[in-house]
């Protein structure tokens, strides 16, 4: 148990016998006895550490020899020969690098004044900051088309262009077919390349070199990324086109169920587009109009879950 500080003890007032007081001598003596009978040691909060007091007691002198704190981090008792050597090297380096403060540097330190508002401070981040960082001479041009191409005809035209370019290089005997990507994307309307001939869709792209070059070029032209799975499971150009122009999944399950042809022939299945409410159930059995009429006759509100 932590004891009260020595100065805060009320008994001390009694112990000071020399002080003139109105308390009788017998009471003061009893207080002195109680103070002497206390069992717990008084914790001393002083500058002398515990280990130092022990050392003094062991050596029996006020100035014991050796390290002041043998358990400190830099105590020689805790150092191995290797660490001792490292410490020695570090100390010698410190001697080299430490610079003494000159009068000028202290003047500079005195001139420092902390800011009270952020008005005059440098601002990092934000749109203006980004504008200032931009290098106008060399604007960044990405590899892929900036925005994804949405139009299916445009995607088909881009695919056709990629196929024609890659096969042209292939038949020309070029080694690196991905050179087609070096021709930067231009805004030419390559829809005009399309014609009614669909034979090119049946072309096989099983050869990995050709497939990789075509996919890379199409991704560059359209900005549409294809997953590895989609690329691997596309043996022909037509399959690749289907992957590129896949319609997004329906957001609602009921739309997908309505689109499923297997449900069309089932007479016992009914698909609802929204929650079937209690009113819907009444309507299904033809009871709602009766309920409605009865409510109106009684001047009651015709409400419920719509």
């Amino acid at each position: 148990m932590k004891r009260l500080p020595r100065t805060a003890r009320s008994v001390d007032l009694l112990l000071d016998i020399s002080r003139p007081t109105s308390i009788c001598r017998s009471c003061r003596l009893r207080a002195a006895q109680q103070s002497a009978l206390s069992t717990s040691a008084i914790r001393r909060e002083g500058p002398v550490p515990f280990t130092e007091r022990i050392r003094k007691r062991i050596y029996g002198t006020e100035n014991p020899p050796g390290q002041e704190d043998p358990y400190a981090r830099n105590s020689p008792l805790r150092q191995t020969p290797e660490t001792r050597e490292e410490l020695r090297v570090l100390e010698s380096e410190d001697d080299l690098t430490v610079q003494k403060a000159t009068p000028e540097s202290s003047e500079l330190a005195n001139m420092y004044e902390p800011a009270n508002s952020w008005d005059s401070l440098e601002w990092v981040g934000g749109e203006d900051y980004l504008e200032a960082l931009k290098d106008d001479e060399k604007p960044y041009v990405g590899f892929m088309h900036g925005t994804k191409v949405q139009d299916n005809d445009e995607i088909r035209a881009a695919l056709r262009r990629a196929v024609v370019e890659v096969y042209t290089l292939h038949y020309a005997g070029r080694e690196d077919l991905t050179d087609v990507c070096n021709a930067r994307h231009n805004d030419d309307d390559f829809k005009s390349l399309l014609d009614r001939n669909y034979e090119w869709l049946a072309l096989s792209i099983k050869e990995p070199r050709i497939k990789f070059a075509i996919v890379k070029r199409v991704m560059q032209l359209t900005g549409i990324r294809l997953s590895d799975y989609a690329i691997q499971t596309s043996p022909t150009v037509e399959a690749l086109l289907q992957r590129l122009t896949t319609k997004p999944k329906p957001k609602k399950l009921v739309e997908a169920l309505h689109a499923d042809s297997r449900f069309a022939n089932l007479q016992n299945v009914k698909l609802f587009e929204r929650r079937v409410t209690p009113i819907d159930k009444e309507k299904q059995v033809g009871r709602w109009k009766v309920i409605e009429e009865a409510l109106v006759n009684r001047d009651l509100p015709v409400t419920g879950h719509q």
Partner: peptide, 27 residues
């Protein structure tokens, strides 16, 4: 449940024509 309705319900409904089946959302 959603994948069941898409994948298994047509076959289940076809094999049990005497049961009336309704599918409705309950958000």
């Amino acid at each position: 449940m959603n994948s069941f309705l898409q994948s298994h319900l047509p076959a289940f409904a076809a094999s049990n024509p005497q049961i009336e089946i309704t599918v409705s959302p309950r958000p």
